[in-house]
Write a protein that binds this DNA or RNA. Structure first.
Lengths: 165, 165
DNA sequence: GTAAATGCAAATTATTTGCAATTAG
DNA sequence: CTAATTGCAAATAATTTGCATTTAC
């Protein structure tokens, strides 16, 4: 785990710097969203980002959050994920190629990288006659040791929206 | 490639048989959806299923298609996938564990299986302290040899809905 | 000053649901 | 006959957008 690296002591956040580098106009709400993102170590969805931003400055609308994450995704600053559950979730692009393991009991997302897998993915694509453009690997797992048969209030399928597989 | 196996000459379809086995009430629309699914070799979304069914019998509503795919998914007869693009896509559960390669130029989905990957996935999960419950691997690729720089009308990002990664 | 960003509410898109009418078993 | 299924239209849920107003550069 590395420090979520909020901001330079109290200066501009990492994401804000990236925005500036790409020539984005920095409004107050943009700066706030950038800061919230920079301080996030998880993979929040838009509602969650809005909640975190809104509690610091109520002068922000959820439409702006939607517009901002989309803009940042287009600029390559954010990555959009769909882990099932019906909402897109975001994380700053920064780590090298990596994948996700979703804890089916808690919904927590763990990142990992595995070079053997990268090689294998390229090889499989090649064997099928394709050049690999991108790929994603998502593992759904349960912590060892396996808890009691019924985890007493375990995760109920988010019956709204799409499911992982 | 195996024959999409529509129906026994003109009898009941493979999916219909599965429905009966699980004790589902077989209405005309259910039977029709089952047949359409049995004849599909691709991964259609609900709208597409509705289109295929509706052109054979207009006495069917899209709500019924939604209800039916959900039911069949719950019964383990269908699998739901999200390949990005905002709509869930379905395929009959029948093949063993397999994954998908999406042709980024055509949207076509190719299935494959790779035992080395299955082993690796389990191993990665174990290393992280998890027992693998499920996983998905999706490759996005472009056919060899790489076509002209701009594939002349190549795939435009389905800007509505969620994206693969 | 000017093009871009914002807020708000209305519009879209995919999917679900209430309810009265129909139908399989 | 009776509970399950269907159609239709209205309801949700997530996300986008039109437009008048504000604001960064």
């Amino acid at each position: 785990m590395d420090t979520p690296a909020s901001a330079d002591r109290e200066g501009i956040s990492r994401i804000e710097r990236l925005c500036i580098e790409r020539g984005l106009k920095m409004t107050g709400q943009r700066r706030l969203i950038a800061r919230v993102l920079s301080e996030s170590a998880d993979h929040p969805d838009v509602e969650e980002l809005y909640r975190r931003a809104h509690e610091r400055d109520s002068h922000i609308s959820i439409a702006t959050v939607y517009r901002t994450v989309r803009l940042l995704e287009e600029k390559g600053i954010l990555e959009r994920h769909d882990f099932g559950g019906g909402r897109a979730r975001y994380e700053p692009t920064e780590h090298g190629p990596h994948h996700h393991l979703i804890d089916v009991d808690t919904g927590k997302v763990i990142e990992f990288a595995d070079e053997r897998h990268e090689v294998l993915a390229r090889e499989i694509a090649a064997r099928l006659g394709f050049q690999l453009v991108d790929h994603r690997l998502e593992l759904f797992g349960r912590r060892f040791p396996d808890p009691t048969p019924e985890p007493a209030g375990g995760r109920r399928k988010p019956r709204s929206g799409r499911d992982p597989a």
